[in-house]
Design a protein around this nucleic acid. Structure first.
Lengths: 199, 199
DNA sequence: CCCTCAGTTGAACGTGGTTCAGTTATAGGA
DNA sequence: TCCTATAACTGAACCACGTTCAACTGAGGG
């Protein structure tokens, strides 16, 4: 019976990730508790720590999956987008918005994990981020053929951050409910403004 | 000796706010602990709860002060700004950036307090926010004289959110160090882009 | 001087993450 | 098949917090 242990370990790991994913999606990051997790998974609390270093590790694993789903959604939106580069940006940004709205708690968890100070961002984060940046960069190069790549990089980051900010504050309850359509409108306002000068 | 009690209460309140303010500024929101606070203030833990409903109340009080300082900084920057409306926006945004950078932990605390779900944002938040929005709205009305007020409101919110996003992700360590100058450049890129079409 | 009661105290409670000594199960060799 | 070293698993216990509340203190009025 070789690998029986590793098998169970893997099964437990998978199970914990799924339960954590559902808990976060349904009730938010703060609803994730070691004891509840163990009881739902049918294991002891200690078992969690045989598979993950701590709960943050588990959350980071869930976040990697969330971030990946986000990437897939944006990619799919881009595939259906028109040729016009500005509209491609708008479509991607609105896909980002839609993902955040439809997966609000999971999306928030992406940013609410407390990273240990001085801790580098995990690889999957940088990779997935790089992928998104590539998608943004391509239409920008078409819109601004005269600018150099350093400026493209800066503008890429700036646009991503802008859209992120609009979605973040738009979905925040403290702002007391910005309608979803208004968020899309704000995204379009900022992004289309880019194009005006190039017409 | 009438009012002696109220006097001590007020003094304790003031003292707690100052200690909390310094603790948050120096070590972040997570470093704020009831026992440490009491020990620093020379009172019992329970005394804190005679003056504030809970620690979140105290943090909100500190946040109100932080938000007010932010407003003052932006106002002062605006006073020294050139007449050009786009440059006014840039100056305000960069003042926002500088405040966030120089008061990183206090600034983060503004957004990291967990608001009870369904709880409305406090009045001071909405007021101060409204003041910032007014500052942004005025130059916009000059830049876009043809658009209606609803569009101005949307654009105001969009620009604030964009700048906030750029600063937020720029100062975030997970993004692995965006130089301060680059953040200012990104702000200028996005905001100046607005003007190009109006020239 | 005593009584009353608001203010104050800090030990104790509840909740949560994390640990670890004791127990159980596994794998590999005899 | 049985035995043993080793790894995994268990859950009670530990620690760190925010928060509470029964007991204590002292100021002001009678």
């Amino acid at each position: 019976m070789a690998g029986k242990v590793a098998e169970r370990r893997a099964a437990l790991r998978e199970n914990l990730v799924l339960i954590a994913e559902r808990t976060i999606a349904d009730h938010g990051l703060t609803a994730l508790r070691a004891r509840d997790l163990a009881s739902e998974a049918g294991c002891a609390v200690g078992a969690i720590y045989n598979v993950f270093g701590d709960l943050t590790d588990l959350v980071l694993t869930v976040n990697a999956r969330t971030f990946h789903r986000l990437g897939v959604d944006v990619t799919e939106a881009l595939a259906d987008a028109p040729q016009d580069p500005v509209e491609q940006l708008v479509v991607m940004a609105q896909a980002y918005h839609r993902f955040a709205a439809e997966n609000h708690q999971s999306w928030r968890a992406l940013f609410d994990v407390e990273r240990a100070p001085g801790e580098a961002a995990p690889d999957w984060y940088l990779e997935e981020m790089g992928r998104l940046f590539t998608y943004i960069s391509a239409p920008l190069a078409v819109i601004f053929p005269d600018r150099d790549s350093q400026e493209h990089a800066l503008l890429t980051r700036a646009l991503f951050s802008s859209v992120h900010g609009i979605v973040l504050l738009g979905l925040d309850e403290a702002s007391a409910g910005v309608p979803s359509d208004d968020i899309d409108r704000m995204i379009a306002l900022v992004l289309r403004q880019l194009a005006v000068s190039q017409e």
